[in-house]
Amino acid sequence: MSFLEDYAYYFGAFGLIFIGLLIMLVKHNLIKVIIGLSILDTGVNLFLISVGYISNGTAPIFCRDDMDPSRMVDPVPQALVLTAIVIGVAVLAMALAIAVRLYQRYGTLDLRKIKELRW
């Protein structure tokens, strides 16, 4: 079981990433594509967290003298993920704002019909 314990998060993360990419590839609705993007982002974030994760670890805070540094999870990925989440939110907000305006202009969110710019 240790294999699963060690790698379960990675499977989860890459599963999310693939699901996200797949949605972006096959869905034609802009909102669904944005949802796919969000899932992809989540997957990447989960992956980052799992890089620094230690099973049954503790928070990396020296609140007591007898804390064991090797039991602590790596704090850096968590900081990274916090930043990445913020960026992800900004992108998502931007995307949704553009989607709303796009719907006002085109009257549709079907990406197969929003093809004025090509070639």
Partner: peptide, 17 residues
């Protein structure tokens, strides 16, 4: 050649993948 820029964003994501 410019037909590959088909205007459909799904295929653009496909190119990246």
């Amino acid at each position: 050649t410019r037909k590959i820029y088909s205007g459909y964003v799904g295929s653009y994501v496909m190119y990246i993948v």
